[in-house]
Write a protein that binds this DNA or RNA. Sequence first.
DNA 1: TAATCAATCCGTAATTTTTACGGAATAAAA
DNA 2: TTTTATTCCGTAAAAATTACGGATTGATTA
Lengths: 257, 257
Amino acid sequence: MKNLKRQEAMLNSDELLRNVAVDNVIFGYSDRELKVLLQQPFVLDKWTITGGYIKKTETIQEAAKRVAFERTGLKKLFFEQFRSFGTPVRNTDPGFNAKHLSELTGIKVPTDLWIFDYFVSVGFYTLTEFSKVKVKKGEIETDCRWWPVNDLPKMMFDHKMIVAEALKALRLHIAHYPIGYELLPEKFTLPEIHNLYETILGRPLDDRNFSKRLIAAGILVKLNEKRQIGAHRAPFLYKFDKEKYDEGLKSGVTLAF
Amino acid sequence: MKNLKRQEAMLNSDELLRNVAVDNVIFGYSDRELKVLLQQPFVLDKWTITGGYIKKTETIQEAAKRVAFERTGLKKLFFEQFRSFGTPVRNTDPGFNAKHLSELTGIKVPTDLWIFDYFVSVGFYTLTEFSKVKVKKGEIETDCRWWPVNDLPKMMFDHKMIVAEALKALRLHIAHYPIGYELLPEKFTLPEIHNLYETILGRPLDDRNFSKRLIAAGILVKLNEKRQIGAHRAPFLYKFDKEKYDEGLKSGVTLAF
DNA sequence: TAATCAATCCGTAATTTTTACGGAATAAAA
DNA sequence: TTTTATTCCGTAAAAATTACGGATTGATTA
């Protein structure tokens, strides 16, 4: 299998750090659901978050950005480090071993190939505007697609836990980072942003108080357009007043709910 | 120099992870000051936070705990991961190179010795009860002692930044973790805990409102003792009601000020 | 074309939380 | 006994948060 060979050649190079890598949980929001971009490596019937090795010439941030770019095609990304994961067993999985890989690929895989080593993973999350993402799977993957954060498939290693931790971080950060701005399209409705916040926080927020606060903060601009949504009253569209938003977040105006 | 040889032997062993290590910022509080435990490696006239390599058999948490234990003698430690640091140049320093080390030690140090490699550092902070710490310097260090967090000496690598980031994390965590409990001795006075919070937050807190809130939360127990403090009115001693404290923090009672 | 349905959208009052602030009490030292 | 530095307490005003119901809209259905 050619892909694996190329991958192997890359992996064997001296250009990468050993025992440490990055994982980047890529979030998107569409269809009233918070979603995570996952891929399925061909070796197993399980899914993984987006990760990669770190080049000796780049920072961990650059590595996180690079791997997210490779999946989404987006250069400008909002991403934050949240925490690192490291245990001797975190990246072991029944099925992820030399024997199984050899059988699957027909290539002789040494038992002590360094990809089986103990890897510390530095975790990031990335916020993307769903519609702008051009999903692109990697060479050694069979599939790559969005999954609802509340309905994840079987996942490899400790990746389910990493997603859970990323979500926790998102909840903590929601008051201090422009999370709504990053996840929503340029124009959106009040019910949309309302639902987004409810989804992230995992609890209901009173709609009147919610919009009241956003509008009081002056970070929303009401547009003279409506969105047609099937059989019901058409909601108005809004956009962010980016300057006021940034300014507000910097000067400590929290959007905690 | 025997110590270096032993160290070198250890370093060369296959038991450690490459390109990744832990750093643990050890905080203590005494004399109305928040302090950090630093050590001075013999190679340079600069100070470092407490760090170490990770064994292949341990988690990153265990590594962080181990290195903190080696300096403080304390087994039970409250510590939290806060963030990781990784750039190709973060652990370079004029003076930290093979030539200089060779001169200093008389031992031939290869230019490409792996300790000069790019290391990602996973940052933790530890909270200690000052009086319980038995400061113990490492074999290859000339000194180890407490420094006021607001008056740090010249520090190696990016360690000053790491301390600053640890302090930032402490500020964020102060509402959700038992920081006062961990840093103060069993019995303490209201002015002491008040000053601790002011120090960590870096801003004045109204004393009446401060004690009001702690007492309202029911996490303080007033004792029938006073502490003699020189020439003035003797303050009452308090201790934490640990159960209520834990319970309160878990159930979301924040101690934000 | 009228009635129905599902969703949007708005404002005020009650409650809770946070902030502001001054002066009496204490204990050792002078 | 006076001075000095520190502890310690309570109330009132302001701000923020929470609670809550009903009118509007626009497509769909009867």
